[in-house]
Design a protein around this nucleic acid. Sequence first.
RNA 1: CGGGGAGUGGCGCAGUCUGGUAGCGCACCCGGCUGGGGGCCGGGCGGUCGCAGGUUCAAAUCCUGUCUCCCCGACCA
Length: 555
Amino acid sequence: MHRQSQLLLPTERQPPADAEALSHKLMVRAGLIRQLGSGLWTWLPAGWRVHERIVQIVREELDAVGGQEMLMPVLLPAELWKRSGRYGIDELFKLEDRKGAEMVLAMTHEEAVTAHVAQVVRSYRDLPLILYHFQTKERDEPRPRAGVLRTREFIMKDSYSFDRDADGLDESYRKHIVAYDRIFERTGLEWYRVESDVGMMGGTGAHEYMAPCPAGENDVALAPGYAANVEVATAEPQPAQPLPDAIDGELHTPGASTIEALAQTLDVHPSALLKAFPVVTEERGLVLVMVRGDHRVNEIKLQNALRETFRPAREDELAERGLVGGYMGPVDGVPLLLDQAVAPGRYVVGANRADYHAVYTVDGAEQRADVRTVEPGDLVDGQAIRIEPAIEVGNIFKLGTRYSEPLGATYLDESGTERHVWMGSYGIGPARIAAAAIEQYADEHGISWPKAIAPWDVHVVALGKDDELAAAEALAAEVEATGLSVLLDDRPLRPGEKFADAELLGCPLRLTVGKRALESGAAEVQIRRGRQTPEEGVPLRGGGQAVRELWESLP
RNA sequence: CGGGGAGUGGCGCAGUCUGGUAGCGCACCCGGCUGGGGGCCGGGCGGUCGCAGGUUCAAAUCCUGUCUCCCCGACCA
C-alpha cells in the first residue's frame, strides 16, 4: 500500500504553458513526469509504475514466444557503426572518451547485438535466437515534441531475431506478430497493425503497430479488413471529373500557376488537371512525375517506386530542359512518370510557357507507378477508407542480411557452407503506450487508465479524521490482500481536492471512506472510466473480494 | 534547417511600448474556523526579472551579443 501523504506525486492545477498535446499536459499535471531539457524527461514514481507495468506485459509476451532477455550498453564503440555504414546518421550522438577513442550513444542496438551473434554463433545448431532488452536509446532528434511522444532519450524494448534463412526469419517475424498482438491487446489500447515502409536500407517486410489518437504523428488509412500507414497505403482513386470538350488546345491562363487558381480560371474540377513534380535522381537524372490535380505526391511511395533516392529539381535544371515553373508539363527529352491514378483521357497540363496551359491526352502507354497519397473515400476492396492520426507504438521489421553482412554474422550450415544469418528487428516504446492510453481514454477530469497499466489498481480516498482514516486503511489492506495494488490518499485535505487529484491520476477504481461510509458501513465506489458510481458501495469490512470482483469487470 | 513565440518565486501570469522601491492568483509555512467536489479569516517565507556586456544618476524595462524552451514545417535507418 502506498500512502499519498508520503508519495512524490506533484499534481498541478494548470498544465505547463508550453504543452500542447493532451497526454503531455496530463502526464505533467498528474505528476507522472517532469522535464529536464528539450526531449529529456524524468519519470516520477507514479509514472514509472505505469512504465514498468507496460514493460512487464511486454516481457511476459516476448518470453512466451521464446525471447531471451539480456542487456547491452548504451555507450558503444563508433567502430561498429562505421562498419554497418550508419555512423553518418545525424541523429546519432557521437563523442570521444578520455583517450580520444570515438564512441557513440546507441540509438538502437542492431550493431551491438549482431556483433555478439557474430562472435558467439558458429553453427546452424545455434539458431534460431530471439534476443531482447529494455534499454535507453539516445537520438539527437531535430525536434522533440509533445512530452514523452518524441524525445531524445527513451527506453525501448528492442528484440532481434537470428535465423538460418528467409523462412526462419518469416517464422520469427510471425512469432513477434503473435507476441505484439497479445501485448497491445493486454495494454487495453485501441490499436492497429498496419503495413509500413521498409525504408531504403532494404528489408523484405515491415509492420507498424499504431494507436489512433489526435496527437499522433502518423496517418493511417483504414477500411474494413485494411490498415496501412499512408506512407505506403494504396487504394482505388475516386473517379476524375472529365474535361469538357470545349476546353482544348493551348489555353491562355494568366497568373494561374497553382492547381487551385487554374481550376478556378478554367472552371473545372482539379481532377481534370495534372500536377507536375520534377525530381532528380542519381540514375535517371531529371524525371517529371505527374499526379492528378486533386492528389498529392507521396514521397515515400515515389522513392520506393524509383528504387533510388531523389531530390526536388532546382530552378536551373528545369530551365535548362525547357520546363517552366508554375506552367510545367510533359516535354520531349524529359522522362515522364505518371501516377497510377491518372486514367487515360484528356487533362490540362502546363504548356511550359508562362501564363499558358495545354490539353494533354493520356493514352495509357506512359510509364506509370503508384506514387500518390491516398485520400479519404478512396476504395480498398470496394470499401471506402478513412484516414486517422496515430502514434506508432511498435514496429516489426525483416532486416534480412542488412547487418549480418557488414558485421560478419555467419554460421556453418549442415553441409559446412558459411552463410549469413537472417535477422529481424522489433521495437516497442513503453512511454508511447502510456501516452497513447492517456490520449485515447482521458476525459475533462483527467486520465482514465486501462486497468492493465494503471499506476495503482485502486485509489482509496480517506475523508475526515482518525476514524475515517483507520477504516480506509483497513479497507485498503483488505483490497491489497486480494492481489490488487492500492494507493491510499491519507492526506489531510478537503474532499474536493482529493477527488480532483484522484480523477486526474486516473486509477480505474476509487473507493471513498468518509463519514457516510462509517455510518452506512459501505465505501462509495467510483469507476473512473465514465465516472459512474454504482448504487451499492462495497462493505467497509470484508469488502476486499467485492472490490476484486468489481475490478475484474472493468476495461 | 526555415517560420513563429516565450524566458519575471514551485505553477500560471501582469509589469517592458513610455527607465524611477518587483506585483497578482494558486501553491507553500504558522494560527484559527470549516469538513463529501479545489472553502474562509489572519499572519508569513520565497524572485541576482535566462546569461554576459553596454547606455544611464538610475535598467525587468533601452541597445548588442548569447543561451534555453515551446509551437508549425522540414526531418524522423
